[in-house]
Computed example of a mutant assay.
Amino acid sequence: MLKKRIWRIVASAFAVALLSSCSGTKQATGSADGKLPVSVTFNAMAEFVHAVGKDKVSISTIIPNGTEPHDFEPKVKDLATLSAAKVFVYNGLDMENWAEKAVQSAGNKSLVVVEAASGVTPIKSGETGENGQYDPHAWMSLKCAQTEISNIEHGLIKADPKNTAYYTANSAAFQTKLQQLYDTYAAKFQSAPRKDFVTGHAAFAYLCRDFGLEQNSVEDVFASGEPSAAKLAELVNFCRTKQIKTVFSEEMVSPAVSQTLAKEAGAKVETIYTIESAEDNKDYLTRIKDNLDKIYASLTET
């Protein structure tokens, strides 16, 4: 309820700010450099928009790097770009529960809104309450990423039809790279002696669905709180029983519990990417490949 009250205040303030901004002169008219102005929610969406739009788009990201997207509550200044954007891209699947109201408050009649995960078969989060019923991490899956890229392609074309061929070609090229990566690792994971790994944050369910794997995580889908002593003991027993040698930790989630688990289980800790924020100056494909390499290595450790 508190989040809802906070959001009503933010939305009202945002609407007032827009109404007072020179009688709508901030309506989307294109950026000064002629590029299509696109507002996105977080880093993975920016990566996908850049893959399709390249030098034809100007991207602004609402959730700052270093901020945990699951906990993000927008302020008026965070949403200001929506009034001047031509396209707004968000993931969906309960990742940005403020997105719909933000679009309504922006009053930008020419705004093309893209829910990137539309069409993805959702995985239940296993949670109830304000976080949402679905696991939002579809961008971590190479198969779901193809759907997201396609949706973004259609959104950019709708906003900028004169560059249709450009967006279509870029989308096809990126989807080919995604498919090639999928094909390579599908064969590798099929022959892996184990199929389960342990992470700090349950962000890999869609990736697991791609390859027939299973994640066991210290924190839940929304990284909301540390595990109980009983849960930690269960994970320690799981690691020992399965002879898990690596516990993965994510940059956006505190590594302390992962480190404790690894120490108790006699395992090492390695960092893995969730692509919720910019990390190590690496692009999407590089980070996903790095993840797949590390996960595969953990499944073949003896």
Score class of each variant (00 low, 15 high):
299 L>H: 01
140 M>F: 13
35 K>H: 09
80 A>F: 11
31 S>K: 15
14 F>D: 09
82 L>N: 06
6 I>W: 15
156 L>D: 04
38 V>Y: 03
21 S>H: 14
225 G>D: 05
66 G>P: 01
208 C>R: 00
109 K>N: 12
99 A>W: 01
104 Q>K: 11
103 V>W: 00
144 C>T: 05
239 C>L: 02
163 N>W: 10
274 T>I: 11
9 I>Y: 14
48 F>P: 00
208 C>M: 02
17 A>S: 10
223 A>I: 11
176 T>W: 06
272 I>T: 11
244 I>K: 02
69 P>H: 09
213 L>A: 02
99 A>P: 05
75 K>F: 14
163 N>S: 10
77 K>H: 11
32 A>Y: 14
95 M>V: 10
253 V>A: 12
188 K>N: 09
139 W>L: 08
261 L>P: 02
154 H>P: 13
298 S>L: 02
97 N>E: 14
47 E>L: 15
226 E>S: 10
249 S>T: 12
137 H>Q: 06
44 A>T: 09
168 T>I: 08
201 H>L: 00
77 K>M: 05
175 Q>C: 08
268 K>N: 11
122 P>I: 03
104 Q>E: 15
140 M>T: 15
91 N>P: 08
147 T>P: 05
176 T>L: 15
301 E>P: 11
151 N>P: 14
205 A>Y: 00
42 F>M: 04
288 I>C: 04
267 A>W: 00
276 E>M: 13
268 K>S: 09
116 A>N: 13
26 K>A: 06
155 G>V: 04
85 A>W: 02
151 N>L: 07
285 L>K: 03
250 E>C: 04
214 E>H: 14
74 P>S: 08
144 C>D: 04
214 E>Q: 15
119 G>D: 08
64 P>F: 11
114 V>E: 04
215 Q>L: 02
53 G>C: 11
256 A>N: 09
158 K>E: 11
238 F>E: 00
194 R>V: 10
146 Q>V: 13
198 V>H: 00
292 L>C: 01
289 K>P: 10
86 K>P: 04
85 A>T: 01
42 F>D: 02
129 G>I: 05
153 E>T: 09
3 K>Q: 12
263 K>Y: 07
212 G>M: 02
